[in-house]
């Protein structure tokens, strides 16, 4: 069977999530590999979410936030930028392909950009293949 990447998308309510919504209402096509979770701000993203997502078998993680300067809470994405930058360095130093983790600033009016980012990211992950390094090997009890 062909490999279909599983990607966790975490989108901020005010920009990226609204942008994704716009992509939907304007009928822009994009791959269905991204599962989007909504948070109120990109600074809500705890880096442990990202480690946990990889552990539970995500092949990639995409974080979306407002453009710097556009944050609904004024400064949230500035904090997020620092945190996620460190997270990326940690993943890379541990030996995970840094391409599997991506942060994008997508504004609410940019449905097209959302679709493009998802398309591009999915293809990148498809080329990388399944993520097995962090994934829990045994069956997780339900």
């Amino acid at each position: 069977m062909e490999f279909e990447p599983k990607i966790l998308g975490i989108a901020c309510n005010w920009c990226t999530y609204t942008g994704a919504d716009l992509a939907g209402t304007t009928r822009v096509q994009y791959p269905h590999n991204v599962r989007v979770a909504r948070v109120m701000c990109s600074s809500r993203v705890n880096p442990a979410f990202i480690f946990r997502a990889f552990q539970l078998g995500s092949d990639g993680v995409l974080i979306g936030g407002c453009e710097p300067g556009d944050c609904h809470y004024s400064t949230g994405n500035y904090y997020a930028r620092r945190r996620l930058a460190i997270t990326k360095k940690i993943l890379e130093f541990a030996g995970l392909e840094p391409e599997r983790f991506r942060v994008e600033w997508i504004s609410a009016s940019d449905g097209i950009k959302f679709a493009e980012v998802v398309k591009e990211f999915t293809e990148e992950i498809r080329a990388l293949g399944p993520q097995t390094k962090f994934k829990v090997k045994k069956d997780i009890e339900t």
Partner: peptide, 13 residues
């Protein structure tokens, strides 16, 4: 390995 990674990487962060 996986749960150890979770603990240590988060602690590094």
């Amino acid at each position: 390995l996986e749960s150890n990674l979770m603990f240590h990487l988060t602690r590094f962060y």
